[in-house]
């Protein structure tokens, strides 16, 4: 609803409350009604404008970076994060090329954990928001069965909300860089080739992860790489960083996969 139509609706609402107040001999309705109608109209207009501005921003961002704006969508639950919780949704989703050759999806992701109350009604217990970049690197599916670089949670990590990553049949690996170990926990599937893992984490890759200001985490499973940060990014600079760090991580995987004779 735009411009004049919106103004007509406000005037109509105000007149309606005044008439209703007069008809019912209710002075309070005559006095407060128009103010309430105006306030509601303002709130609705602000919310609409805000949503439209957000939509315009993401559509514009996608267009300038060579991405296609998809909007609301869903993803396949290929990694633990993409299958986390009871309900999941992707918003402001963009599809395009990363580094010129890798197809990727970039956008916001939310999952909700639900449980039942005493009356048996389902209610949302926890809602988690992410910004993520999903990249398809199918060639590494046999080399890296499951690799999860998560934010370090520490001793009280379990209390810090829902952990979507199951640690069954997985073990934690300590890398050489103390700075990296302070920032992240690396979990790998038990059947992961340790030598290959060490080859993947070359010193330059470790330094990139340990020093990148975005502090992005990633998961690689079933040939899908998910680079994520546990917050909603809605500005151009941070989205660019997200694309850059995702491209760097995907590039490292690609380089390592290429070096393996059985894949190349």
């Amino acid at each position: 609803m735009h411009g004049r139509a919106f103004a007509y609706w406000i005037v109509l609402g105000v007149v309606a409350t005044v008439v209703a107040g007069a008809a019912t001999h209710n002075l309070l309705l005559v006095a407060v009604g128009p103010v309430a109608v105006a306030a509601i109209a303002l709130a609705v207009s602000f919310a609409t404008a805000d949503r439209q501005a957000e939509l315009d921003f993401f559509a514009g961002y996608a267009a300038t970076r060579g991405f296609d704006y998809v909007g609301d969508t869903s993803t396949m639950p290929l990694t633990p994060l993409l299958g986390a919780g009871d309900t999941r949704r992707c918003t402001h989703w963009m599809r395009g090329q990363l580094g010129g050759s890798l197809g990727c999806g970039l956008g916001h992701y939310t999952y909700e954990v639900r449980d039942r109350d005493t009356r048996g009604r389902r209610q949302v217990r926890e809602t988690r928001h992410f910004t993520l970049c999903v990249i398809d690197i199918e060639a590494g599916i046999t080399l890296f069965p499951g690799l999860f670089l998560c934010r370090r949670r520490g001793i009280f990590g379990r209390l810090d909300g829902h952990d979507w990553l199951s640690h069954r049949n997985r073990h934690k690996v300590e890398l050489e860089s103390a700075a990296l170990c302070e920032r992240y926990d690396l979990w790998v599937d038990d059947d992961q080739d340790e030598l290959l893992l060490r080859e993947l984490f070359v010193p330059s890759f470790e330094v990139l992860l340990a020093e990148h200001p975005l502090q992005a985490c990633f998961e690689y499973r079933a040939g899908t790489l998910v680079v994520y940060v546990e917050r909603v990014i809605s500005d151009e600079g941070h989205l660019d960083w997200m694309r850059e760090v995702s491209a760097a991580i995907a590039g490292r995987f690609g380089a390592e996969i290429k070096e393996q004779p059985r894949v190349a």
Binding site: P203, S204, E206, A210
Partner: peptide, 17 residues
């Protein structure tokens, strides 16, 4: 050479800690 310098950076940071 680049990787040596990155590895050296990691080592020296660990030594400092």
């Amino acid at each position: 050479e680049g990787e040596i310098q990155y590895a050296r950076r990691i080592y020296n940071a660990n030594v400092q800690r």
